[in-house]
Simulated scan of single mutants.
Amino acid sequence: MPETTIPATSTEGRAIEAPRPALWGRALRILAWLSFLSETIIIGTGGAVRLTGSGLGCSDWPLCTPESLVPILEVQGIHGLIEFGNRLMTGVVGIIALAVVLLVLHTISGRRSLIRALWFALGGIVAAAVAFAIAAPLHIPASPIALGVLLLAVIAAAVHSVRTTPARRDLVLLAWITLIGVVAQALVGGITVLTGLNPFIVGFHYTSSLLLVCVTAAFLVRLYEAPGPRERAVPKWFAILTHVTGLALAVTIIFGVLTTGSGPHSGDADVLRHGFDATILAHVHSWPGYILAALVLTLTVSAWALRLPPRRWLLVLVLAILVQVGVGIWQAREGLPPLLVGIHMVLASLSAATYTVVVLHLKRRVVAKD
């Protein structure tokens, strides 16, 4: 990818001044890549929790047990360690997402915008603490309520920040969406434990994690591109077919989530599944998968024949989809071994991220005419 540039441009297209030293730009690139990698890794660690039956390795939330923040090895064993490790990874993802938001604000809008965001953060923490203090004596779930209040504060900070940022609102918005998603994911993860691994909530937890991988991929693409008006860089029929492919990808992922939730890997041996027939769902899951592979192959051939901008990323996508199909067939024939299922889950997120990059390359920046 080319060197990162964050030209400061107002929403009307006028050039404005904004602090963007090379050091900050380099740090932002590193953090953006770490955000993408950490969001991908946490899908792998979350998959490990589910595939090893460690979903209730920590019986409580936000503590691991009612008496301890960390797992007690003699009581919870390896399952507690696996679940607690995934919780620690959530903290890492959150810290990186917060750092990206703060660095974007500092780089684009300067210290004043950064200070405003920090005030919002302080207000959110205080409000969450107050909510916890009120809820705890009433014997209602204090931790989810406090985290919900914090989530509302983050959303309020994001809205204010995007509205008051004069330049690169695309980067600011994507950075905030990632942070909001991480906080929301922590809340959903807690609800997942408190509801005893409800399969629908577990499926939603995975799907939203996958979407965050796509958002961080989009942030990387926009980070390496100059701002300004954009126009379609491909024929209209190609753009339409690309979006139809996205629909096929979404349907494939949804049926994949339902299939996993109905199979042998529900996160704990005593957890009830969806109640669907996993064998039938596995076949239904494969149908849109084959359609997806055909559509991606068609797009790839067309893009290379017409030399369209997304052609290289489409080649990556077609390879990812073909590997996915191969892994899917392999795991079905081998009786769904946990390792192959985990690989399948991570590859699904990377395929979705690659598709996101393809969509973002359907347009190009409008070059000003002299």
Rank of each mutant, 00 (worst) to 15 (best):
H160C: 01
G181Q: 07
R168Q: 11
T195E: 13
T164M: 01
A184K: 00
F200T: 03
V213R: 11
R169Y: 04
T195W: 11
T164K: 10
V188I: 15
H160S: 14
S208T: 13
G190V: 03
A184W: 01
L171R: 05
A153W: 06
L197M: 08
G189Q: 09
A175W: 08
H205L: 10
L179S: 05
L210F: 14
Q185L: 13
T192A: 13
L174F: 09
N198F: 03
T165Q: 08
S209L: 05
C214N: 07
I177K: 05
R163K: 12
V159A: 12
G190M: 09
R168D: 11
G190S: 06
L211R: 01
P199R: 10
A186R: 00
R169E: 08
V215E: 10
L174N: 06
C214Q: 13
V188F: 10
A156N: 09
S208I: 13
A186L: 10
R163G: 00
A186V: 14
V182I: 15
A156H: 04
V183R: 06
N198M: 01
I201V: 15
V182P: 11
V154G: 02
A175G: 04
Y206H: 02
T164H: 15
L211F: 14
T207G: 15
H160I: 00
L187R: 02
R168P: 12
V162D: 06
G203P: 02
A186G: 15
D170C: 08
V154R: 07
I201W: 07
G190L: 10
L212E: 07
L171A: 09
I155F: 07
P199H: 10
R169H: 03
A167F: 07
N198C: 02
V154M: 05
T178D: 12
A156I: 01
R163D: 05
T195S: 15
T195N: 10
V188S: 08
L197F: 07
L179T: 09
A186D: 04
G189E: 06
Q185I: 02
I155S: 04
A184Q: 05
H205N: 03
V213G: 13
T178V: 14
I191N: 01
T192V: 11
A153T: 03
A156R: 09
F204N: 02
L173D: 00
G203L: 03
S208E: 13
L210T: 12
C214W: 08
I180S: 07
L210N: 04
A175P: 07
L187I: 14
I155M: 12
Y206T: 00
L179M: 12
A167R: 08
L179F: 15
G196A: 05
G196K: 06
L187Q: 04
V193Y: 09
L174M: 12
V215A: 14
S209V: 01
V202I: 12
L187N: 08
S161A: 14
L212Y: 10
L171P: 08
P166S: 11
I177N: 04
A167M: 07
F200R: 05
T192P: 00
V172Q: 07
V172R: 05
Q185W: 03
I191G: 01
S161L: 00
L187S: 09
V182R: 08
V162E: 05
L194Q: 13
S161C: 00
Q185S: 14
T192I: 02
H205F: 09
G203D: 05
A186F: 06
S209M: 10
V162L: 10
